[in-house]
Nucleic acid binder design. Structure first.
Lengths: 348, 348
DNA sequence: TTGAAAGCGCTACCAA
DNA sequence: TTGGTAGCGCTTTCAA
């Protein structure tokens, strides 16, 4: 209870022409001396109707004078549909790779005449969130991560969404799936370490619970790569802090590892620094491989081997969304959209 | 003219219970055997009206059975206002600091019962963009960066936005300003280098034109700090690439600099690596200071001095937005929201 | 070439 | 306690 609600009487701005209320198409019609229908025809360039040039001019002039801006909600209410693609904001901290990908996607979708809206649904759980999204009546919903179940998909579809796509680790009944199987990242790393002759492999597990979405599958991938190969996989938890890394490095030799997959390049850097300070040689004593192929990996010494991750281009994804919208009702497709390749440098 | 619009006949999904069309409150009313008004009362818990418990139950049951989700656009059309806070997506690549800040803000605003929508307005210019935002009739608009002019502010206000806030380097007429003056970052860095006895200061200027928004003010801040101090400031352009840095390092001695403000920690890392490879000692030959206070700065050797940047908490900012909304019409406020302090480590 | 009017889904006023 | 209904701003027949 921090504020008291006070009704402020509308001050007519002395400089602006009396902005009593928001101008509507009716106001424009009145000002131009025509009907609302005509206003609509003119402003939307309706090709089915021919409006005389003088009238057009009067309407445009009036609209400009009044500062008229159409009301999107009213329009789509009337139309019965919108061109909004809703994308719930991811709840996990997300790196530069994803940000760039998202930006690209936005570009590509607006080129296809969609409006991209990122909706902050923090604090909503599962189907609750789906309901909130459905209230906006988007034509398509693109959901990153987990958190949308079959129920949620059904809610969205029943509320008119023509396409629901998930961007995550697994398929969801009824939705198109852009499968991002992070286990392949771990698998590539594991296979690489194996090929380099390593047998006792550690896997760094970030403490941040939000990252489990990625770290667990990556771990699983490493396990899969080493399964039946006379090699061991050891989970090594690590918080993203200097002291935690230093402590880990102190205990490092006792772990008896000859290689480590460091979750990503940033964790790799953290670990490498700590290991070096402890006098552990890389890659002789312990090989280190990261993931994400960030610039910083090239700047480390030894240069960091890493797993390069390839996401789909925004362009491709936008086309996929568009196709899904236009063929609504078709059987949901599944696409494997995460590519991973090892970039071998000096640390392994 | 890329696609032909084709009307796809609605395929009745064989598995789902005949989802002919999206259920409305009228459908719920019919199913429950009550009026639309009653449905509205029940589902909104309208306190001014008392509805009998059996009726409530019937309405809720019907709503659930039909999978009814209210139509946000219709609701706010009727209400004459929304609780949407619109935030255009920043067009420049943005670091982890900002992402976290944005997330926090989202949280805080939804706690105040606002709906935060990030709108991808890529490809729209100035007032054009403002018009697009205005179509959504947000109650508040929070615009990062430049790109909104007084005209745009006027458009937004005239279309009903009760608060327009900018988050950038300068005030805009009519809008509340959350001033992020990046020149203080440069100023702190410059003053620090000066205090450490450096006089020939280079300033790294990223090649990315999207970053000019930050790099120019930072440069200007350094200049201001060194003005009249018998010191020189040299602009040093650098692309974020290894080879560019290597080339720069080769020419480094000829620049005759004894210190450099590296724009941010990442550029600092890039440069430090190149300088070290060239045998230039840090800080003896050249002192290096970054900005952003990222973890990686602590991991470099020598540890990187940096300018820690303090952004307002999402909580504070959310309260500011809320206050602005509720006192719409009041004279716009200006807040200086960017704090900067030097973190002195070993590289200077 | 233009206008009148219906109606998209919803809520709130006024009656019953 | 419940229902009828007007009307938010817009587009789109159908008439004139």
């Amino acid at each position: 209870m921090r504020y008291v609600m006070v009704q402020i009487p509308e001050q007519p701005a002395p400089s602006l022409p009396a902005q009593r209320s928001v101008p509507t198409s009716a106001d424009v019609a009145r000002a131009a001396g025509v009907s609302r229908a005509t206003v609509s025809y003119v402003l939307n360039n309706t090709s089915a109707v021919r409006i005389s040039e003088p009238t057009r001019r009067r309407v445009h002039q009036a609209a400009r004078d009044l500062g008229y801006v159409p009301h999107a909600a009213a329009r789509s209410l009337r139309a019965g549909h919108s061109r909004m693609v809703l994308m719930p904001a991811p709840t996990v901290p997300v790196g530069p790779l994803y940000s760039q990908f998202f930006n690209e996607l936005q570009w590509a979708l607006s080129r296809l005449d969609y409006t991209v809206v990122q909706y902050g649904s923090v604090g909503l759980e599962g189907d609750e969130a789906a309901r909130a999204w459905a209230e906006l009546r988007p034509v398509a919903v693109l959901v990153p991560g987990t958190g949308l179940g079959p129920q949620g998909v059904a809610v969205l579809k029943r509320s008119g969404a023509r396409a629901v796509l998930t961007l995550g680790p697994e398929r969801v009944e009824g939705a198109h799936a852009l499968l991002m199987d992070h286990s392949v990242v771990g698998h590539r790393a594991g296979a690489h370490l194996l090929a380099r002759g390593r047998r006792r492999v550690g896997v760094l597990m970030p403490d941040d619970p939000g990252l489990e979405l990625f770290s667990k599958p990556r771990l699983e991938g490493v396990r899969r790569a080493l399964h039946g190969k006379d090699a061991t996989v050891t989970e090594v938890p690590l918080a993203y802090e200097e002291e935690a890394a230093a402590q880990l490095a102190k205990d490092w030799r006792s772990l008896g590892l000859d290689a480590v997959f460091a979750y990503n390049d940033e964790y790799a850097m953290l670990l490498m620094r700590a290991l070096k300070d402890e006098g552990i040689r890389i890659p002789d004593d312990t090989a280190v491989i990261g993931a994400d192929d960030l610039m910083l990996g090239r700047l480390l010494r030894p240069r960091l081997s890493t797993v390069h991750i390839e996401l789909p281009s925004g362009q491709e994804l936008a086309e996929l969304v568009d196709r899904a919208v236009r063929t609504a009702g078709a059987v949901p497709e599944t696409h494997e959209v995460l590519g991973a390749t090892v970039v071998h440098r000096a640390s392994t």
